[in-house]
Structures are given as structure tokens and as C-alpha cells.
């Protein structure tokens, strides 16, 4: 009897140590703050935002914070979590953000891995830029929620085509920053899309068509998203679960 218990214990410890990555919680959710870096309200706000985005676009962005990376790099852990949890729907449109807080003795780490279905929209180079420009600056100031909020906004905009990767890069090259930068970008958009249309009407089809068609569609989608915002936030909405999405290991990581 005693022997049995011991062997059972051994099996149990082996089973747990075999999985260095966090277990998928029974009640699936998009925000998994295992390292407790967010307050209760922040956690709810982020979860609500990500759930709303999932129900509107079916793109799942999962956030996982861990105290310890268990010897893996942050990106490896993100890739494994995507694989084990199946983040993303049938279109493999998932992303996993792994966050390890900065401690007295170690750097903070963040990694984003992208599913097969979104890796052409959020390329490795773009993921790196979002990490460096949108996530880490806030993290450095100790504003973890702020960084996550800003960073996930950009990731969402990239996946819906609200702005393209090139436009995002251009914005940073010209030195624009923060909301002001986005605003100018948005105004530029309006001007350009109007310009494109009028030129096309005027017969200069080649100039007008240089602006991708889906970009215009994306802008339309953006405004529609804005109107449904109210509906979703009042209901709160709950997460329907992970959809078995797969990724090929793309993405990027950074530390501070």
C-alpha cells in the first residue's frame, strides 16, 4: 500500500515536471495572470477587451504572465502554450503574449508568437517593433497594464488591417509617437483614401488603385467595430474557449 502511494506520487511529480509550461486553466480565459502583475480591475478590463475582439473577429490574443520561464526562452514558452492550449480559431488566427515581470535579479521578458493565420499580418519584424515601441516603454515605467493595453491595441489594428505594417513602421521612422502619432496617421488615411477615390473617378485609376482595396474595407470595418463596442461592453460577454489554433513559431521577444 505504502509502495503504491510512493509510486503514485512519483508518477504525479514526473507528470507535472514534464510540462514546463503552465497548464491550461479548466475555465478557459484569454488573460492568465499567473504572476499576478495586474490588479483585479485591470485583469477584467483586459479580458473583456480581448474577448470582445475574439467575438468580433475570431482572432484570439491570449496573455499569460509567469513568474518563471522554467528554463525556456519567453518565445519558446509562447510557442508551446499556443501549441498545447490551441490559441486561435480554425483559421489559426491566434497570438500568445508571454510576460515575465522584472525582478531585482532578472530582466523582464516579453514575447509574442503568431499563429499561421496572422503571421502575414503581424510579421516577425512588426512583432519586434510593437514590443519595442508599444509594450516595453510602459513596462519600463512600471505601467504594465498601460503597456499591454497599448500593445494589444496595435496588434488588433494590424490583424484587422486598420493600418498596414508599413504604415506602422513609417510612423515610427518619422518619430511620431503615442496617440498623437496615431491620430496624424488616421487623418493622413482619410485624406489619402479620399484622394485615391477622387482620382479614380477622375480617370487616374493607376494612382487610386495603389491604395489596397482591403485597406478601405478595413477602415469601414473599424467604424462598424466602434458602434458595436457599446453593445458588447454592456453585456460583458464571456470567452467561448480556445479553438485549436496552430502556429509555426513566428513572432518576436524583447526584454527590459
Amino acid at each position: 500500500m505504502k509502495k503504491n502511494i510512493i509510486s503514485l506520487l512519483m508518477v504525479l511529480t514526473l507528470a507535472t515536471s514534464a510540462f514546463a509550461i503552465p497548464q491550461k486553466p479548466k475555465q478557459e480565459r484569454l488573460v492568465n495572470d499567473f504572476a499576478q502583475v495586474l490588479s483585479g480591475n485591470e485583469e477584467r478590463a483586459l479580458e473583456q477587451k480581448l474577448v470582445r475582439f475574439d467575438s468580433q473577429t475570431s482572432t484570439q490574443i491570449a496573455f499569460v504572465s509567469v513568474k518563471d520561464l522554467e528554463g525556456l526562452s519567453a518565445i519558446e514558452m509562447a510557442i508551446r502554450i499556443m501549441e498545447e492550449w490551441g490559441v486561435g480559431g480554425s483559421k489559426d488566427n491566434g497570438m500568445v503574449i508571454v510576460f515575465k515581470p522584472k525582478t531585482a535579479s532578472s530582466n523582464g521578458q516579453i514575447a509574442i508568437t503568431t499563429g499561421y493565420g496572422v503571421e502575414h499580418l503581424v510579421t516577425d519584424a512588426l512583432a519586434k517593433q510593437v514590443i519595442e515601441y508599444d509594450f516595453i516603454p510602459s513596462f519600463r515605467q512600471g505601467d504594465i497594464f498601460g503597456g499591454l493595453d497599448k500593445g494589444t491595441d496595435v496588434l488588433m489594428s494590424l490583424t484587422t488591417g486598420e493600418f498596414t505594417g508599413q504604415q506602422y513602421l513609417d510612423k515610427h521612422q518619422s518619430g511620431g509617437s503615442g496617440i498623437g502619432g496615431f491620430f496624424t496617421l488616421f487623418v493622413l488615411f482619410l485624406i489619402f483614401s479620399g484622394f485615391g477615390r477622387s482620382r479614380r473617378v477622375g480617370g487616374f485609376g493607376s494612382r487610386g488603385s495603389s491604395l489596397p482595396f482591403w485597406l478601405l474595407m478595413g477602415m469601414g470595418g473599424g467604424s462598424r467595430g466602434g458602434s458595436s463596442f457599446g453593445n458588447f461592453s454592456s453585456g460583458g460577454g464571456s470567452f467561448g474557449g480556445f479553438g485549436g489554433g496552430m502556429g509555426g513559431g513566428g513572432g518576436a521577444s524583447g526584454s527590459w
Binding site: I75, E76, I79, T113, T123, D124, A125, A127, K128, Q129, G247, G248, G249, G250, G251, A252
Partner: peptide
């Protein structure tokens, strides 16, 4: 960063 991402994909 693309190269770095590609190395991760290779490993995966």
C-alpha cells in the same frame, strides 16, 4: 528580427 523569428520557426 525576421531572421530571429525564422530561427524560432526552424527550432519549432
Amino acid at each position: 528580427s525576421q531572421l530571429e523569428g525564422t530561427e524560432n520557426r526552424i527550432a519549432t
